Amino acid sequence: MSSSMMIFAETADAMSGLAGFFSKGGPFIWPLLACSIVAVTTIILRTIALRERNVLPLVIESEIERLVPGASAERLARIAEQDDSALARIVRVALHHLRWPRSENVEFVQTRARYEMVRLEKGLIILEVITGIAPLLGLIGTVSGLVHVFARLGLSTGAADAKGIALGISEALNTTIFGLSIAVPSLIAFSYFSKKVEAMSVEMETLVTDLITKCYYGRIGRPDTTVRPTAAAHAPIA
């Protein structure tokens, strides 16, 4: 029972200290708090969205590698229709346009791939912006706090209270600490996700190129079916 009470007391003290941190941080602490919430939410959502099975499912990779050049891709088409990953959507586009000339199909697939890359990079710009503005907001908050500290010092009629000045400066520096504590994880997450998207894009490009090569393997160009006038058509009528 005593251990439970101690845990409860420690939790209450921690919550009280956290509330005091935000209440004494000045007006710029609240935009920083909003930045931290947005950053954490974005990191969680990007972690889920960029999981391997949501972008490059193993079953589709294996099926593309198993596909024999020139063979039917019906099994792969069925698998891709039942999947909603980025690779599956690109594969569906490639397979749905196999009747087109290869160059046109490749161009259409590239357009779809660029769209998928934009979807994968969604949210990374938010982390990049937060990485830039969080330290600046913290610095502005600190400068603002120092201005208030020295303003009170100038208005005081008695001797300067060294303890009060030190306390005011320490509270003013809270926003800088908070801003940096937001920016550093955001920068790490942004760099990690950017490299992961880049690696996935290269792997998708390799797989789709392999798929198109196998699907068009041994295919002869379509004969020219344009109807042209024959020599008899230009012969003079007797």
Score class of each variant (00 low, 15 high):
167 L>H: 05
172 A>G: 07
158 G>C: 06
142 T>V: 15
136 L>N: 12
161 D>L: 14
139 L>G: 04
172 A>I: 10
127 L>K: 01
133 I>P: 00
129 V>A: 02
133 I>S: 00
140 I>V: 15
150 F>M: 11
175 T>E: 14
156 S>H: 11
143 V>S: 04
159 A>Q: 04
158 G>L: 06
163 K>L: 14
157 T>S: 14
169 I>C: 07
135 P>I: 00
130 I>W: 00
143 V>G: 04
164 G>P: 03
154 G>E: 05
144 S>Q: 15
135 P>V: 00
131 T>P: 00
126 I>E: 01
150 F>I: 10
131 T>K: 02
170 S>G: 06
146 L>P: 01
175 T>L: 14
175 T>F: 12
160 A>R: 10
133 I>Q: 03
155 L>E: 15
158 G>H: 05
150 F>V: 07
174 N>D: 12
129 V>M: 03
127 L>Q: 02
152 R>T: 06
126 I>G: 03
170 S>H: 04
147 V>R: 03
155 L>F: 08
153 L>D: 11
155 L>D: 12
147 V>P: 01
166 A>H: 04
138 G>D: 06
156 S>T: 14
171 E>D: 11
176 T>L: 12
171 E>Q: 11
162 A>I: 14
143 V>P: 00
157 T>H: 11
155 L>Y: 09
128 E>Q: 15
167 L>R: 08
142 T>Q: 09
173 L>F: 10
169 I>M: 07
167 L>E: 09
154 G>K: 09
171 E>V: 07
139 L>D: 03
153 L>H: 06
167 L>A: 12
176 T>F: 13
150 F>N: 09
136 L>T: 13
164 G>F: 14
145 G>C: 08
